[in-house]
């Protein structure tokens, strides 16, 4: 671990938007470089992926009290220290897959270390974590399905938050507050908080609109803006449109599973 990495203290409470808007392949590549802005980029990348990494660590069986430290260790030792970012490249595939594989391996190592400290040999043989998984041991600390789902859920949440931020900023800059309000209270808030969607009539009354067609068109137009923003987020990691579409499908399935 180099000294610069040692100094990279990730504030998990500031992971939502700060530094996120600029994080894409360019930022990842910059973070892996020796450019003057590399330190800033590394900080941005670390903040951005903290929630997904932490979710995986937490669900993999690491005790809650230690999940922060393990996440911090992964970011400093693997992501930054072992130059994980330098191995990332657009042509090599999705950054999400690379990160997931790395954090999975890291978590397995961590759990192995912990097991070796706490578990005594049985009949002279030390059971490996793999044995636990293969034998379907329900007491095994690591259930690979749940941590991955937690990771993907955090990832899609990050993407959606970012897309929402882009659309909101667009609305502010272009004085489209009414459009934003209709989209937010009819689509976004119900999706995020379970709030009751506002009716077309209520919007018409509040904003003195003369026809329900205005509300319908506003919603359709804002949906299109949102999809464009989301696709741009995903396109920062993958330029193949079919791949992006598959990615969206996968992410939505993740969300759907979360809401069941």
């Amino acid at each position: 671990m180099n000294s610069e990495n040692d100094q990279t203290q990730v504030n998990k409470s500031s992971n939502s938007s700060a530094g996120a808007s600029q994080t894409n392949w360019k930022t990842i590549i910059d973070a892996a470089s020796n450019s003057p802005t590399a330190g800033h980029s590394r900080e941005g990348v670390a903040r951005r992926y903290w929630p997904a990494i932490h979710a995986f660590v937490r669900k993999s069986g690491i005790p809650p009290a230690e999940a922060d430290d393990v996440t911090q260790a992964f970011i400093c030792d693997v992501m930054l220290g072992r130059d994980l970012l330098a191995h990332a490249a657009p042509e090599r595939g999705r950054f999400r897959s690379l990160l997931l594989t790395s954090v999975r391996n890291f978590a397995i190592d961590e759990l192995r270390k912990r097991k070796s400290l706490t578990r005594k040999p049985t009949n002279g043989k030390i059971l490996s974590l793999d044995d636990d998984i293969r034998s379907g041991d329900r007491n095994a600390d690591l259930n690979l399905d749940d941590p991955e789902h937690a990771f993907h859920t955090q990832w899609v949440t990050m993407m959606i938050d970012q897309a929402i931020s882009v659309v909101r900023n667009w609305a502010i800059v272009n004085s489209q507050e009414v459009q934003w309000d209709i989209f937010n209270r009819r689509i976004l808030e119900p999706m995020r908080t379970g709030a009751e969607p506002i009716s077309t009539e209520a919007f018409m009354k509040q904003w003195s609109l003369t026809s329900s067609a205005q509300v319908a068109n506003t919603l359709a137009r804002m949906k299109r803006k949102f999809v464009a923003a989301l696709m741009e987020q995903l396109g920062n990691y993958d330029e193949d449109p079919d791949m992006i579409h598959r990615e969206v499908s996968m992410l939505l399935q993740t969300l759907e599973r979360k809401t069941r």
Binding site: I160, R186, I187, P190, M191, R192, T193, G194, A195, E196, P197, I198, S199, T200, A216, N217, L219, A220, R221, K223, R224, F226, V227, L230, P241, V248, S249, L252, L255, E256, T259
Partner: peptide, 27 residues
């Protein structure tokens, strides 16, 4: 409106390669 929280973002997948046709779908 349908309760969108039950079907969070299904409408995204209805978007096709034509932004205008997508708009018609959503309308």
């Amino acid at each position: 409106p349908e309760k969108t929280s039950a079907l969070p973002l299904h409408w995204i997948l209805q978007s096709d390669h034509s932004p205008s046709h997508t708009l018609i779908n959503w309308l």
